[in-house]
Write a protein that binds this DNA or RNA. Structure first.
Lengths: 140, 140
DNA sequence: CTGGATCCGGTTTGATACTG
DNA sequence: CAGTATCAAACCGGATCCAG
């Protein structure tokens, strides 16, 4: 009950600017959120959880890749606070903690998917640009 | 010329996981790129440039908001290297440098738009979650 | 006067070791 | 296994200084 119902406030931004009204207060608010969730680890964790479903702490860390426990803990806490993931503690002898995406988190994951698709489609362009840029710099 | 043509490699990821084949090497590659562009300032700069078009250094910094010149310079450099923005220097008496999105950068902006829309639609959910989480923590 | 490079202080991050 | 504690390193932001 959102995508379709959302007032078309920044829709014209999607295709192109039309240099227009967009509520500044709202934009500031949204901007703040973007600033907080547009984090490398947040994106990677969301993708991992979305792809694999419920995961335990260590397993999640392993699948995400090069993340330290500290950042994993920290990012997970932030995401939990933001309502993106649930943290379920099973009080058993060897501690067992499950992390899973909430509906909110899954929604964000779906939104990220277009970025993901974009990256998948353009990584070679990026690498090419990087090589060209490096060559340009090296030449100076 | 991308969204529609892109091979449906991780499309099943969009809706839900189906615990499946997705090329691991490709995923690692894409993951690497996501890790590099998933940056707070990168997103904010893309949005700003997409909304306002070509901008000068100082003007861009002002519109982005709370960014320091150092981070603006650094992020812009990275984005230039990645081929997301063009940096045009006009050799005039008062230095004049224009920054504009490339097609690649615009594409990323468009992809990121869904995240923007999501944030716009759910910021109240997030704030609610944060309040609940804070209360839960404070209560302990 | 603008873009941006440099130096310094504070914060964040990462590696390792330790506890429940 | 899941996290915390500790310390060193890297990074961020602000002010200042430099080049055109």
């Amino acid at each position: 009950m959102d995508q379709a119902v959302t007032p078309p406030i920044l829709y014209e931004w999607a295709g192109r600017k039309s240099a227009q009204p967009i509520d500044p207060a709202l934009e500031a608010l949204v901007r703040d959120i973007i600033g907080k969730i547009a984090d490398k680890w947040t994106m990677l964790i969301i993708e991992t959880l979305d792809a694999h479903g419920t995961l335990r702490f260590t397993e999640l860390g392993h699948k995400v890749g090069d993340i330290s426990q500290k950042m994993l803990t920290k990012t997970l806490r932030q995401m939990e606070a933001d309502g993106l993931v649930t943290r379920t503690v099973h009080p058993v002898v060897p501690p067992h903690v499950d992390y899973a995406l909430t509906d909110l988190g899954r929604g964000l994951g779906a939104a990220f998917c277009s970025v993901w698709t974009w990256a998948e489609a353009h990584y070679d362009d990026i690498e090419q640009s990087r090589a060209a840029f490096a060559a340009r710099q090296g030449a100076v």
